[in-house]
């Protein structure tokens, strides 16, 4: 299974959890891949906001990402290993301004098509850095230390606290049981992927990526 396919599967699985706010209905293929939504969520439909006022965090997202992953902001992502992805390369696409040289005095009114791509590049880069540092120095690990000595992917019970830690660090809240279980269940997909040589690392990077690039992480 290619990394892209793994990402797609993970996205669908998490999306199914995140979006399933309807009362019980016939199971769908997407729902089959995920676990059952939380009972509390299922109990009643969510009261929708009249305002629907949601803002893109833009450059502030990188601040949250740096804190959540315990990385210096400038090390989150560097294109070609040199230019800062957030403050230089993708700054305008991600809602920043550059008034002095480019004359971009206000954030673009509508996010360009490249914004999502840029956000994903930053999230993936930052997660790779976090995971690699944790695996290289488990004594100082921020999240993924327990995976350092694993020859393969540990069992679900060992992965659950890591999934919960991702929500704690990146979204600063507890994961719901369904959210945490979705990340744990993703391990089965990774285990089934015979192509990967480092299933623990891949699981860690991709689950980190899934949470870091979620709507809840990017918007407020």
């Amino acid at each position: 299974m290619s990394r892209e396919r793994v990402l797609l599967m993970l996205g669908l699985a998490l999306g199914a959890v995140a979006c399933d706010d309807e009362p019980a209905a016939e199971p769908t293929p997407a729902a089959d891949m995920a676990v059952a939504p939380d009972a509390a969520v299922m109990a009643q439909p969510i009261v929708a906001s009249d305002k629907a006022r949601v803002q893109f965090k833009g450059p502030r997202w990188a601040n949250d990402l740096a804190v959540g992953l315990n990385l210096p902001k400038r090390e989150l992502c560097r294109e070609l290993g040199q230019a800062d992805c957030m403050d230089e390369v993708h700054h305008i696409a991600l809602g920043g301004v550059e008034a002095y040289r480019l004359g971009v005095r206000e954030a673009l009114p509508v996010a360009p098509a490249t914004a999502a791509i840029a956000a994903e590049r930053i999230a993936l880069s930052a997660c790779i850095k976090r995971v690699d540092q944790d695996l290289a120095d488990p004594a100082e690990a921020w999240i993924f230390g327990p995976l350092a000595d694993a020859s393969g992917l540990p069992d679900d019970a060992a992965l659950l606290p890591l999934a919960q830690a991702l929500y704690d660090k990146l979204l600063r809240r507890d994961a719901t049981p369904a959210e945490a279980q979705a990340l744990v269940d993703f391990a089965a997909e990774v285990r089934a992927d015979g192509a990967t040589q480092a299933p623990a690392r891949d699981w860690a990077v991709l689950t980190c990526f899934a949470v870091a690039s979620s709507l809840e992480s990017l918007f407020y």
């Binding site: 109990a43 439909p45 009261v47 009249d50 305002k51 803002q55 502030r60 601040n63 804190v67 407020y220």
Partner: peptide, 26 residues
């Protein structure tokens, strides 16, 4: 229901907005 109370002033929601709008992080 839901994470935010969309029917009245939600202090947690406001705290998060203050931090993001003014401090620049959650």
């Amino acid at each position: 229901t839901g994470d935010w109370n969309v029917c009245t002033y939600d202090a947690v929601y406001v705290l998060k907005k203050i931090h993001l709008d003014v401090c620049g992080q959650s």
